[in-house]
């Protein structure tokens, strides 16, 4: 798993390859067609990091076979 996803450029609809871990760290990605750059808004980075951490924890629990309590 490379962690590469693509999202459509909101300007020209060209798929933009993004690496979600870098995106969550605040990196911006540029559309190859219209050169628009996209990134997470600075105020949303903490939310993304928190969700990412939770997602990784759940994946670790799942991989190790631990019971996830809800």
């Amino acid at each position: 798993m490379t962690g590469e996803q693509s999202i459509q450029c909101p300007v020209c609809q060209t798929p933009i390859l993004i690496e979600y871990k870098a995106l969550i760290q605040g990196m911006r990605f540029t559309c190859g067609n219209c050169k628009a750059s996209i990134g997470i808004a600075s105020e949303a980075i903490s939310v993304a990091k928190e969700t990412m951490k939770k997602y990784d924890e759940l994946k670790t629990q799942f991989r190790d076979g631990k019971k996830v309590n809800k």
Binding site: P10, V11, I40, K70
Partner: peptide, 23 residues
């Protein structure tokens, strides 16, 4: 658990604010 919030009996996706900048 990671991508949705349970609210009023329904799952709502956690939305992430993005910014697109162009010249």
């Amino acid at each position: 658990d990671a991508c949705f919030k349970y609210h009023n009996g329904a799952y709502e996706p956690i939305m992430l604010k993005m910014v697109v900048t162009r010249s």
